[in-house]
Write a protein that binds this DNA or RNA. Structure first.
Lengths: 210, 210
DNA sequence: TCTAAATCGATACGTAGCGTATCACAATTA
DNA sequence: TAATTGTGATACGCTACGTATCGATTTAGA
């Protein structure tokens, strides 16, 4: 087991405190090319059909270089996905927390209906047999949006739009899960109308016939 | 391309109208052994790690025999899954439709928390890169339970528990998706309490602070 | 009873991608 | 200049794919 000193190789964002050692640097353009090739292939053929050799070929890079920089496919794919998708989910800020959430849900629908949707689906799919990918998806993607959403729920509670007895995780799961479920199963279309229906149902309730 | 006359090979349930031709019969015990080996391996290692050769070895069968009977892995896995799981989701019949659904959701939680849960997750996961598996999962598994559920919703509307304006598919997606989402993402536990919270939220609504 | 048809398990085949190792060369630092 | 590290190329053994072929076995019908 040879020790490679500067090996980053992780699911966290790279390059925090480079130890500054001798030797040739890793080319950042190569890094970019690999991430782009991964993104392209991911949306074209999906996670499980993705091969390191295929990515290397598309990026014009030796596959050794990829294995040197990422410990596994999941890690690479997650980096590529986040680099591309992180700026895609801005949170609106209207006066009402409920309206904020409703609008954000419609934004999620837009993204899930774009080419990114297939990627998200394929990542959740791959997570079912790749524990590292699953962990990366939870901590590096979902947890971030969940934290934002919880802040809005908190605002809603302070503004008396949402009862303080409500469990935020439960509420957010109830609102957002149907979007992901339709993305994954494709048994019914994923539309903005669907968002409105869910939101109306959850705000008014069945007994409060709207 | 040699023509094999009696080849069943489909995602529908086999043996409808056997053309009754000459030649040796397919051994039904072999059939059973293959399905059982598939179920075992599926819950042990998941869909995408499953190999036909592995199944053949476990079942004590030549892999040719499997390829002769099923067109692909998805088809075989779906047959194995349904043979094992079909009788697992009985619908309760209390007086109230809402209560029926609540109890059935708790039953689903039980199943998803059992070893079958891993299988369901792995099937949905595999569906993201296998269109045939996806189609089979929708039509041979989900559609059946969805039909049952819709009947209960209809009963609920007739009994004035549920407003007639409600879209049944939307309602059922809102109720059940969070269960599957927690199964797939594993970001929070899947409990009967969770079911109660969802049901309370959807019946009372946010404004009707329960 | 004999013949044609179909299944059976076993085995071999070429193909693809895995992850590792080794190479000569290039870039960087001390 | 010398030591160190990254780079792309190539070769390695491995596993599973899906197909083809084999002799043996079971079955239906003439």
């Amino acid at each position: 087991m040879s020790r490679k000193s500067s090996q980053t190789k992780s699911l966290q964002n790279s390059e925090l405190t480079e130890p500054k050692t001798a030797g040739r640097k890793r080319c950042p353009i190569t890094h970019q090319n690999i991430l782009e090739a991964t993104s392209e292939l991911l949306s074209e053929i999906g996670f499980s059909n993705l091969t390191i050799e295929g990515i290397a070929a598309r990026a014009g890079v030796g596959k050794t270089t990829i294995y040197r920089r990422w410990p596994n496919k999941a890690s690479l794919v997650m980096d590529a996905f986040l680099a591309e998708t992180a700026p895609q989910f801005p949170y609106p800020n209207t006066g009402s927390a409920i309206t904020d959430i409703r609008e954000q849900m419609k934004l999620v629908v837009k993204v899930l209906n774009s080419s990114h949707g297939n990627t998200v689906a394929t990542l959740i799919g791959g997570s079912q047999t790749d524990a590292e990918l699953a962990e990366a998806f939870r901590t590096r993607f979902l947890a971030l949006r969940r934290a934002e959403s919880k802040a809005i729920v908190k605002k809603g509670i302070e503004q008396n739009e949402i009862p303080s007895s409500i469990d935020a995780d439960m509420l957010l799961d109830t609102l957002y899960s149907p979007l992901y479920f339709r993305l994954l199963i494709k048994h019914a279309p994923l539309t903005e109308t669907f968002v409105d229906q869910i939101m109306d149902l959850v705000t008014n309730g069945l007994t409060n016939n709207a």
